[in-house]
Nucleic acid binder design. Sequence first.
RNA 1: GGACAGUUAGCUCAGUGGUAGAGCAUCGCCUUCACACGGCGGGGGUCACAGGUUCAAGCCCUGUACUGUCCACCA
Length: 930
Amino acid sequence: MDKTFDPSSIEARWGEAWEKNGYYTPETVAQLRGVDRAELAPYSIMIPPPNVTGTLHMGHAFQHSVMDALTRYHRMRGCDTLWLPGTDHAGIATQMVVERQLAAQGIKRTDLGREAFVEKVWEWKEYSGGTITHQIRRMGNSVDWTRERFTMDPALNTAVTEEFVKLHEQGLIYRGKRLVNWDPVLLTAISDLEVESKEENGKLWHFRYPLADGSGQLVVATTRPETMLGDTAVAVHPEDERYRHLIGKTVKLPLCEREIPVIGDDYVDREFGTGVVKITPAHDFNDYAMGQRHQLPLINVFTPTAHINDEAPAAYRGLDRYDARKRVVEDLEKLGLVEKIDDHKLMVPRGDRTGVVVEPFLTDQWFVDMKGLAERALKAVKDGQMRFVPENWVNTYDQWLNNIQDWCISRNLWWGHQVPAWHDEAGNYYVGRDEAEARSKNGLSAEITLTRDSDTFDTWFSSALWPFSTLGWPDANAADLKRWYPSSVLVTGFDIIFFWVARMAMMGLHFMGDVPFREVYITGLVRDSEGNKMSKSKGNVLDPLDLVDGISLEDLVKKRTTGLMQPQMAAKIEAATRRQFPAGIEAVGVDALRFTFLALASTGRDIRFDAARASGYRNFCNKIWNAARFVLMNTEDKDCGQDETLPFTLSAADRWIVSRLQKLETEAAAHFAGYRFDLLAQALYQFIWNEYCDWYLELSKPALQNGDEAAQRGTRRTLVRVLETSLRLLHPLMPFVTEEIWHRIAPLAGKSGPTLMLQPYPVANPQKIDEAAESDIEWLKAFILGVRQIRGEMDIPPGKPLPLLLQNASADDRQRIARMNDSIQFLARVEAPRLLESGDSAPQSATALLGQMSLLVPMAGLIDKEAELARLDKQLAKLESDMAKTEARVGNENFGKAPPHVQQQVRDLLNKQRHDREALQAQQARIREL
RNA sequence: GGACAGUUAGCUCAGUGGUAGAGCAUCGCCUUCACACGGCGGGGGUCACAGGUUCAAGCCCUGUACUGUCCACCA
């Protein structure tokens, strides 16, 4: 084995072998294990299908690390395990990517026509999808490629059609003219969720509307002057003393010369503005609702591109909405109808894809009636059929479902599932699985010309089916569907709880009669090391594979500054990148990156990604690698207990590490069950580095040299078996390095197999827990630490053997010293310790305390008197401050109320502190005397 | 206007009633025969603030401040 672990040399090899040999595929796994799948517990995860808009980012890599850990863990535990991969067509987002590319060549979507354009998008989908699957493979994610799905596969299109037709038959889908959020650039309706409202600086214009009878005027306040062209009423609060006598009168709408009524509605806030609101039902959601209440006419004054249409006075026709605003204000000013203009902060709705201000716009769209669906989804969580981890996300889920609006599912786009509905020339719509069904269901003769609805569905209308459309639905008898629905867990981000989680819950319950997954593990967002969201426009994105393979500074800068939407940001991004990664990014390998994500994955909070952390875990891989080298050097070609007829004995150290291992195994199971990957990662790291490597390997060295044959065999056996088990424990988190090493170690532990992936996950054996051995080793560690502290603080070179005297040793101490003498001498680098009997006088020494016993290192020629006095002072100061706290506790007049065992514990502590203080003070006095 | 998080060592974070922890960074000693991507040792915290409950509070309760996120129709 090489001296240093090189991830790149093994990753490609194993990744390919795992997939080629079918270890990701449940059928093959069962066959290799010789078991009947029907008898296994099912475990399944459906990947949240990444959008085919580009490449996977850190957030994906993070979530995939979690899912793969869960998948590999359950597969090792013997479950019939499926992780199903796939991608999402992501209607709007993907269409925009391709449109932008075409625009760069001066081509418009409409130049190509629908068919040719969609062809282009498919080409892009192949490219992007290929990149994504390559990334998933590189990360060692054990997804079953034989079951890969894309949301626009023919089978999934069948599912979407079924969904639409069924819901329509059930009266849950309707078509209607409603006010929707309209993106005037994309020229499509979007759902409430796709609108992002942000506070922006604007103005509040106050206009005078004269009363028609000439008796005065009303002053209205508005943030959108141009919509006045579509006003159909003016509203006041019905109990507003200032205005209520005017209700029923009319005002003359300036510029339009229309008369509109003054109405009373308690929606109006008397405190805001003037207490008078202009009502434009066709261009504002609140006004629309009020219009419904008062049967007001709707006057739409905009075109789909948000220009003024022919409903408005001629002077404004054809103007863009912002030009129209200017003109309206100017014209009103000329007429002296502008009372005042105030600065005003308001919430501006923008499309989440285009960033353009969205218009409430009156169009015909398809809607899903959500009330009933939402109620069942709420109930499923309340009844515990579906559980959120961490639990507090239930609030988010509930809040949205409790205030749900009907869902506008049609999009005026080309890329997506086309609506299975046809209309005749009169504009009547007919729904069916195909045109023939639409005709037969509605008794339409062949003479009637039908045209298919050109709209497509909101992407989420198909994603909502993902947990079962991928498994064969609508065929209710599909084997996969029966096997793996509901899936075990959904791993996703909180940002799509509404978009996706809630909708899958609703559709799953509606069509399958059960929740789509038992648990929802919500991850945080991956942010950069400063806590900023990673985004291309901020120039702070990291490609997971650049951490895996490393990247030079120049390449990173280039990557971050090309293809920017705002090229003027390039200089700033470059500077920030050079500051943060002056030497580029060093390669850490897949295992280290995965482990980093898991170690940072604490309970659902965002994680700040720190490349230094990943380097730390790269070092951890190297540590494991070298531990394996050490073990191999000492065990290869020797019997390690495979031959069970040969005698072996186990030392305290052997029994200690085995005992610790059992506790680790128990912990690992609990952390997997609780989705505490951070604690899991920490426990594994801690055990392997701080217990196995730092102590057990060191303890094994003298044992391998000086022990008798049976003891040596026992140590070799333990070295190999604990390492082999550790590799299995670690495998779901770090698949590559563990697999590579396992094949070298396994035979020595009497194990064999084509892959570590299919070995059983270790389970604790309580009979191997050995508290006596654990306390022996705790004592030994404290002993060695005492000597090392003296050595370290006195700057004595580690190699120099020290003389050691032991004072006041108890019978137990003596016994342990005799038993573990070799270990003590080797690890503490001391000469054979000499026991002082009472009455023996000690030379001037540096001291460490261990229970009642004192460890004395004679100072002659080694240690400066003042240095040791200073060290004792420091220890005493610490001790005394601790003691003060303990005494305060015992001294509390109500200390007697504490449980007896706690009282005992505190008293013991105080006694120990008193003893230590006495011993240290005595020692100090002795040194001073000399 | 509601709701939910968070505030612990220089940094990133664990720690749901019993003597404040980890990794990274830092300082000192060491090219000790697995590993310098290493070993050993050290330093570093009024646990945001103010009250309260308790024998005992980083942890429970109340309030305040600050940070972040989500939801919401005030023109």
